[in-house]
Design a protein around this nucleic acid. Structure first.
Lengths: 342, 342
DNA sequence: CTGAAAGCGCTTACAG
DNA sequence: CTGAAAGCGCTTACAG
């Protein structure tokens, strides 16, 4: 019932706690016989080292923290899966917190993780985050920090991202290639770096193809986390303001699906009247009707990569050889489906 | 850079560590003046108690473990969200592990959590779990354990569930009410208690309505985690074997969506030729075409409730007043949509 | 090959 | 009101 300690093993075997500890950790300076006895007894007593004591001594918790804006989210839940699967392989546990796209919460959660003394932190920023002192605080403490997907360029830490600009360019170019002349963009929130980059990719594709860039065709969302509704709302507004639009590049599939629902209700045909490209490749996008053309964003791989990078930095810091921050860019892919079939 | 300790505060103030510790925790036997000084200095030095040391002393980690079969899953990610939101309110952190529907992994992960000395464990069982000694081990150690959704009736711990039998009955009755005479059932895996109960609810509804129960209309899945494909496969098989089926109650929306895709490809019309009721109310089900009638399963609430129950038990055990296990049943609701519109 | 001792950073019963 | 001391369960440098 009560957990077994080294002391009890030592007493039963009439040897010292030191020797028991060493035997269990296979120190070379313990005799084979003693090791055998200790290990056997440890097994029968079901000995498990007390992590609290180990942590206190080694100053490591073998635990990392993860802060994520939303959990119920196809992309992010894939990232989580990637992170914990990789962490498990290396013997690390993951504490997950949801910032809910709130800067205030994010800040508090970082405090919480730091006082919990996790070995490192993985974060994807909240939409509202514009100040980064809470992130620099992590770095100042010499704790590894890796940002992914929603990052702040200015913070000096490693990052795992996709080339958002290029991906958005690809998406927009595809609309142009199938003949769209008047292409709108639903960009989502204003602040996050990836919205900015996706917008810039959209704009560049237009200009490179000698299509005029019209700011009134770009729809921003001031809202919080209401993707589907946001798509509906934007679509409605677009139909009022710009009857001539024949293609839309929509930041995030869920918003795109909201828009498609609205178009469908108003009798607008996709892709005949308007072609649509989403972003992220949620599973849903492959089963709705029409199926949605989108950019595949490798969530699972991003999670894995982010953990791997964090792990490297944890090791490096432990060995007193801290590395310079690194930015890793993962490939994306355009998935062509019915919503752009001409 | 290096974390501040009680000792440093004590030295700077020329008082004892004991007094500093007490002052920070607002013990009544410390003078107001001292408290003021200590708290102020702690703040300026940004003192954070070392959790490892605190845990070692108090034997509490303020951390719980959560084992879940799959993370990328609308229902389960809602449960996770419910759990961590509630845990955060009570100052608890959550370590999340994914069992991947594997009994072996689940067992290892419980070992991991126990040696991590979490204060309690929340679990939804893997499909493959038929032996429960790893769960009893938790209880034997006097650690609180709460199971949710996928439970084992035989294990003596608290449970948070829905009335699966009733919900399935409701779903099947709905098919009968709209005129279906020959109703199939895709039950999913064989073992989990909730598949069993949903099957029993289906069967009872048939019998209560004087419809014959035909075992060949019940499709079991021996597969692992391939819901969408499973739905397609079952639908294909059903079309070969039973052309006369006019309604299906399908365990889990994702499987239902797979089936609908197959029916669609084969030119079978829903709901005209076959009516379908799913289970779980994934967001997706409200946006596909036709929209899917289903049973709404309150994931967020289930997560919240499970944590609350665990929390109560943690407190109860701490106060040496352990409570008897309790089973909490949450309400479900039939959501009528196009797939059963007659 | 074995073990005594110090110490990680706290908390708390006890003495004054 | 304050503090010395013991102890939580480990690890590890050091002595023998």
């Amino acid at each position: 019932m009560k957990p077994v300690t080294l002391k009890e093993i030592a007493e039963q075997l009439n040897i010292s706690v030191t020797t028991v500890s060493k035997a269990l950790k296979d120190y070379p300076d313990v005799s084979k016989k003693t090791k055998g006895l200790v290990k056997e007894l440890a097994k029968t007593l079901n000995y498990k080292p007390n992590t609290f004591a180990v942590n206190l001594r080694t100053k490591e918790s073998k635990t990392i923290g993860l802060i994520i804006p939303v959990i119920v989210h196809h992309f992010f839940s894939n990232v989580i899966k990637g992170i914990i699967s990789q962490a498990e392989k290396k013997g690390y546990l993951v504490i997950i917190l949801q910032s809910n796209e709130s800067y205030e919460l994010e800040k508090k959660q970082i405090d919480l993780l730091l006082s919990q003394r996790v070995d490192g932190i993985l974060i994807s920023l909240a939409n509202g985050t514009a100040d980064f002192s809470h992130l620099n605080q992590i770095i100042d403490q010499g704790k590894p920090l890796v940002m992914f997907d929603k990052i702040a360029k200015i913070v000096k830490c490693s990052k795992v991202i996709i080339d958002d600009r290029k991906a958005a360019y690809k998406a927009t170019q595809h609309l142009i290639d199938i003949g769209c002349k008047r292409i709108a963009h639903f960009r989502g929130a204003l602040l996050p770096q990836n919205s900015i980059d996706r917008f810039l990719g959209y704009k560049k594709a237009l200009l490179d193809n000698n299509l005029p860039y019209d700011p009134s065709l770009v729809y921003i969302c001031e809202c919080g986390d209401m993707s589907f509704e946001e798509g509906k709302k934007n679509a409605k507004q677009l139909l009022n303001e710009h009857k001539d639009v024949d293609g839309i590049f929509i930041n995030t599939d869920l918003v795109a699906i909201g828009a498609m629902t609205e178009f469908n209700e108003q009798g607008i045909k996709i892709p005949e009247d308007i072609s649509i490209v989403g972003f992220s490749n949620w599973f849903m996008s492959s089963v709705i009707s029409p199926t949605l053309t989108t950019i595949d964003q490798p969530g699972f791989k991003m999670g894995k990569t982010a953990f791997k990078q964090l792990y490297k930095e944890i090791k490096a810091i432990k060995n007193k050889k801290p590395k310079r921050p690194k930015t890793i860019t993962l490939e994306t892919e355009l998935i062509e489906r019915e919503s752009t079939e001409k």
